[in-house]
Design a protein around this nucleic acid. Structure first.
Lengths: 225, 225
DNA sequence: TTTTATTGATTGACGAGTCAATCAATGAAC
DNA sequence: GTTCATTGATTGACTCGTCAATCAATAAAA
């Protein structure tokens, strides 16, 4: 059984299991034993590779943050116009890799963790700054002076929509969330009259990647059940 | 020492202490012992009055929800115009009673609790529905058909801005949050051209109550009693 | 005396972290 | 091509602390 080079494999398995376990429990109050068992190893091995529960949790958090960063970077790089960049950021936030049930639960819990863990707060701050920076950059040509302010707004709105997913009752798919965000961005930018004509074209291109768990109906403008 | 009619007093003290303890710890992982000690009694007494930890937590949550409902009801009742009602809801969300450090931390934690507690989810759903209903009602004369959709947006935005307060790094006061929401609402309503002229007047009246300044920068550490 | 208020002590369970001990590949020496 | 020392991989069992919940007992009203 024991082959060499197990460490990265074990670490990845533990991170994955941690996110799954958090999603299943809805809490950070998961035992190392459960995580390890789900990852197919003993608790001692988990400790061997990570040193402690905190490190496991933080590694899971880092993983989620990196996944989001990758998603966003790729989509932004592929966008040609400011409007497309804005849309790319919105779509990245609700792309499947960042929008599964487990990841949403984990994300919410990491917000809580940031209140008692210096390192978690640091990581979350990095994420927030990057989002803000990306949004501001995309909005500069569209909103000029007001770019930073609008970026703040859209950032908060993304967080808010995302947060509401934690409550399964009024759950909507990623596509619906994206549609909502797009509508808000349009409203916000409409008075400025610089809304790019190719907007809908970019939107159509991004939309196919952002659909999640197959909403049987086409994404509606009005997300009211 | 033993006087009669202690029950309501003890319960209130425990609820208050629970919120404070959650705020201090940043977690729902607070011990009954700590809560009871902060409330000036023994753990056994806390169990006597509440039956268990879950009940204490839910009572604290209910208390916060009721506080918010009272705040909102009062402000909405005092508002004369649709725009003023909208502003009243916004202000209520960031009024001191709902926007202190402890309450923000508790609120965030209750979102997490709702993922594993049926009753917590139920309570949160009630809050969400009421907020949605209030917003829709206020927006109907301003946005007509789109009222429900706009209400969803503003509701999500309120949650998002509120959520960001959990991270103290980029903390802003309640007044700043309200200003941000007002700006967003104006942007959103501007194209519809029904924005009431007395808006700024109502805003000025509401603003004084909603200012709150408690910016922190570091996560909290366990206080040693 | 009955009821309400109150607590210190106790219990039972659970979980994080540690440790000493195995297991199995690898590769060098013969 | 055996032998064997080395080292990473892996675990079961154990320690130690914590915490929710319970209980038996005491004190003061009514």
């Amino acid at each position: 059984m024991p082959k060499l080079g197990m460490e990265p494999i074990r670490r990845a398995a533990l991170v994955k299991a941690t996110i799954a376990e958090i999603g299943a429990a809805g809490t950070l109050d998961v035992t190392v034993g459960k995580i390890a068992r789900r990852a197919g190893m003993s608790t001692a091995l988990a400790h061997h590779y990570f040193g402690g529960k905190d490190q496991i949790l933080l590694a899971a958090m880092r993983h989620i943050l990196v996944m989001f960063a990758d998603e966003a970077r790729g989509r932004i790089a592929a966008a040609k116009t400011p409007a497309a960049r804005l849309d790319a950021i919105i779509c990245a936030s609700f792309a499947p890799s960042n929008f599964s049930e487990d990841v949403i639960a984990a994300w919410l819990n990491f917000y809580v963790l940031a209140q008692s863990s210096e390192e978690a707060l640091r990581l979350l701050t990095v994420y927030r700054r990057r989002l803000q920076s990306n949004l501001t950059h995309a909005l500069r040509p569209l909103a000029g002076e007001a770019a930073a302010q609008k970026a703040d707004l859209i950032g908060a709105l993304i967080d808010g929509v995302y947060l509401r997913q934690a409550l399964r009752s009024d759950a909507m798919g990623g596509a619906a969330a994206v549609a909502m965000l797009r509508g808000a961005a349009e409203d916000m930018l409409a008075p400025i009259k610089i809304a790019a004509p190719e907007w809908s074209q970019d939107a159509a291109q991004n939309a196919q990647d952002a659909s999640q768990t197959a909403p049987l109906t086409a994404p509606r403008k009005d997300p009211r059940p």
